[in-house]
Computed example of a mutant assay.
Amino acid sequence: MDISTTETIEILGTISFAISGTFAAMQKRLDPFGVLIIAFVTSIGGGTVRDLLLGDTPVAWMRDVRTCLLILFTSIATIFFKTHIKKFKVTLFLFDSLGLGLFTMLGLQKGIAFGLSPGICVALGTITGCFGGIIRDTLLNTIPLIFRKEVYATACILGGILYFILIQFTISVVVAKLIVIAFIFVLRILVVRYKLTLPKFVY
């Protein structure tokens, strides 16, 4: 596994989800402490669930204080720059989509590092990408995106499958990672832009 690439993806993913969590909390008009809490759970929620499932404890953010500091500084900076951002909803959506792609890739790589099957790796990627948002939305009393008809977890699953297809060809692992991250990000934008949804079951 390319350590430098993985660390870069983790940093960018943490920043993206910290920003999305901060904006989601500010939309609900939480106080600064509440905003920081939501930023933290959005950033570390998926990775924590993944590491607990793998038995990889203490979980990643507990072993590296830099993760907590990164979330703290990102959230504070986002709060200060909020006056320069007019469309909270659009900004939240873009950073949430970017974080989804980045963290899905992190989960995939963690599963591969543990020698797990492709199907389980895709599941871990989906968990890593989605569960921070699930915890965030639950705490904010919002129906999590993964439980709506909007394409969310499906984007993670398709991205994970695409990764395992790409590495079967003569393409570098780094390029495959970038393609998958971009695929998930662009797919999320397209499905929202054109209002594409999964079928909803009615009983």
Rank of each mutant, 00 (worst) to 15 (best):
M1A: 11
D2V: 07
D2Q: 08
S4Y: 10
T5E: 10
E7C: 00
T8Y: 11
L12W: 05
T14V: 06
F17H: 02
F17N: 00
A18I: 02
I19K: 02
S20E: 03
S20T: 08
S20K: 11
T22Q: 11
T22Y: 13
A24C: 07
M26S: 10
K28E: 12
L30D: 06
P32C: 05
G34V: 06
G34Y: 04
I37D: 05
I37L: 14
A39H: 08
I44M: 08
I44L: 11
G45H: 05
G46S: 08
T48V: 03
T48F: 07
V49C: 05
D51M: 01
L52H: 03
L52R: 06
L52W: 12
G55W: 00
V59K: 06
V59N: 09
W61Q: 10
W61F: 15
M62Y: 11
T67F: 15
L72C: 09
T74S: 14
S75P: 01
I76P: 08
I76L: 14
I76Y: 13
A77T: 13
T78H: 06
F80S: 07
K82W: 09
H84W: 09
F88D: 15
F88S: 14
V90H: 12
V90Y: 12
T91Y: 11
T91L: 14
T91I: 13
F93E: 15
D96A: 09
S97M: 08
S97T: 15
G99C: 06
L100C: 10
G101E: 00
G101R: 01
T104Q: 02
Q109V: 07
Q109E: 11
Q109C: 04
Q109G: 04
G111P: 02
I112V: 13
I112Y: 03
F114H: 14
G115N: 02
L116P: 04
S117E: 14
I120T: 11
V122D: 06
L124P: 03
I127N: 04
I127D: 03
G133K: 07
G133E: 05
I135C: 04
I135M: 06
I135Q: 03
D137F: 02
D137T: 06
T138Y: 13
T138K: 12
N141E: 15
T142A: 12
P144Y: 09
L145G: 11
I146N: 03
F147T: 12
E150S: 08
T154Y: 10
A155W: 09
I157A: 08
G160F: 00
F164P: 09
F164E: 07
I165L: 15
L166A: 02
Q168N: 14
V174W: 00
A176N: 02
K177W: 11
L178E: 08
I181V: 12
A182Y: 00
F185R: 02
V186N: 01
L187F: 12
R188N: 13
V191E: 07
Y194C: 02
K195D: 15
L198S: 10
K200G: 10
K200S: 15
F201Q: 11
Y203N: 13
